[in-house]
Design a protein around this nucleic acid. Sequence first.
RNA 1: GGUCGAAUAGCUCAGUUGGUUAGAGCACCGCAUUCACAUUGCGGGGGUCACAGGUUCGAGUCCUGUUUCGACCACCA
Length: 715
Amino acid sequence: MQELEKAFDHKKVEPQIYKMWEEGNYFKAARDSKKKPYTILLPPPNASGKMHTGNVLMIAIEDLLIRWKRMQGYAALWVPGTDHAGFETQITYERELKKEGKSRMDFDRNTLYNQIWDFVQKNKGLIEEQIRKMGASVDWSRYTFTLDPHVLELVFNTFKKMEGEGLVYRDDYIVNYCPDLGTTFADLEVDFVERNDPLYYVRYPLVDHDGGASYVVVATVRPEPIFVDTHLAVNPKDPKNNHLVGKKVLNPLTDAVMEIIADDYVDPDFGTGVVKLTPAHDKNDYAVARKHNLPIIAAINLRGRMNENAGKYAGLKVKEARKQVVVDLQQKNLIEKIDEKYLHLVPISYKGEKDIEPLVLPNWFVKVATLKAPALEVVQKGEVKIFPTWRKITYTKWMEEMRDWPISRQVVWGIRIPAWYDVNQKPDLSVTFLTSDGITKNGKVSDLLKDHSFAEIEKGLQGLIAAKASKYVISKEKPGENFLQETDTFDTWFSSGQWPLATLHYPDSEDFKYFYPTQVLETGWEIVKLWVSRMIMFGIYLTGKPPFTEVYLHGIVRALDGKKMSKSLGNIINPDEFQEQYGTDALRMGLISGTANGKDFNFPKDKIVGYRNFANKIWNMARFMLMLFDGKEVPFYSETLQITDEDKDIIQKQQLLIKDVNKNLDKFRFSDAADQIYHFMWDELAAKYIESIKGREDKEIALSVFRYVFLNSLK
RNA sequence: GGUCGAAUAGCUCAGUUGGUUAGAGCACCGCAUUCACAUUGCGGGGGUCACAGGUUCGAGUCCUGUUUCGACCACCA
């Protein structure tokens, strides 16, 4: 037995141990009809990203559960994987392009996709290495990437099935569009920031004078799309304004006649109590316009500029147009006043912090009514249990409110929607493409085909927008010569929502038959709505069974100052540094003992230091033991040994400890379990029992008891 | 506006169906120094459990109200 060093050096020990584990294939789960399966699927981190504190906590908890069940004799399977993280990865790659003075508009869609593919392949190794460094006992032989061929196959089949059953439809819809990033966002992905913008009080001349007044005043922060407005609205219960219902005014920019309608969504106390309706660029106005069957006319295009409906302002960016419009209105004396100090919330994308522009676009939707009903029921009935229990409300509320799900995203990096449009059928298609000379062109495909061959358009294709009524064919391959494929990709959650099915190779594999449904889904509570709800929906839809029986939601690891980690606050903690300084065990155990009951918690720096000391304590206990062995033959502990009361006491205490720890882990009370082990080993085993060994005559017996208890504690 | 959570030692937090004297880590104070470990050992100080009522033999824990903080959802022309 070699001499141990005086202090525990995690840097030397950790890599050796993981290598041994991996080479020994210890984590490869075998299907065994005599054992019960116990499965956890690793929520896949971003393939081109790196480990953050949330990932560390997730891995620590899941590894703890898996090792615990593996020791209890279950066929324990922990499947690792990574996510292509559509939007995030594309943004990262575009940032790289920008450094070279390029942008995504310099490439056709296929070229760009292939470049990002290479980029991800190049970076994928980092996160995989970090998972290993965390000591995660995952089964690498079952590693899954969300763009693996069998995942694409599954996603295609699911989509085709849903489409065939009428669960998929296309519709115009007002979406949260970000002109800077060129994509749509789900409501859940939109954040609001408080901002100071001028509030303009604009005069709309009345066609027939109303008593003494010759105009109606409307307060707005967005005067620039006024040209496309066709109606104003007031609240019918508003005594101050309801006499205006049915009256006509002139559009201040175009002089077109506009009618004033009644709708009770209008807040009589805001501004003047009269609002302008801009259905194409405002969510509420859109809803009102649909209700009253009003025309919906766009004034802003996909690049965030005024379109051809904007007369002389066409081509200007929204904010420039706003300035111009205000100047022109002032010249016509149609601005009554400007409130410069108006504070309001502006929608931005949750990733890019860029402004969102509500636009009306054709989108792909999934009807959720029939999918969500059973997904809500299984949780209400307790077939799927959510821990901590108070988080259940988040889920059930969301399921009750959930509306149809827009699944198309205007990003390149993702699974392309397998719908094809036949150009010969003259569908209403707008395309953007690079000509063979590298020039960007866009317009109606029927016009462009006059000067360009189909092949040229197909090769240089960047993006395509098909009117909602366009006919399409669902197909894996190009179904005919003159077909163009939809350029939208699936929302990432559409594919990751099928993660349990994808990792276990639904529908025919042996793994699927043995391991599905899985036991515990462990993840952060912030993606309950985005991810957990979708997995349950897809699981039930395709297999009739929810994909797991328990959901444990850990809290968010906040920064040391108690605030959410964010780039703008500069308070992000890089777990690598702590792993480097204090060791993986200390980092893992520290984080686990910080998360008592699934609440959010501050990064527990002190605890990590404490558990580093604990790791050293354990190291020295081993060192002490080996020192006393000193080449002697020490019998293994058995009940036939002549043991003292002291020995019985420590063994009994350990039996109790094991019981308590099991009980706590059953209830996901990780920090209690960690605490109990810490105090048993440090206070009972090290401080009391070891001290007593030093004075013992029958050292062999004591040592064999110690070895027994010590090794059990390590487990 | 709606929902959820939180307020316990100087700091960060545990405290499970109500049940003796409210705990931990860190910090602080005193002592120990060729001991497996100073990443150590022994000892100690420190709490009106946010506030006000109520239920109960008994409340940090349950109920009502108030205050303060955090998060999420909706809306904001």
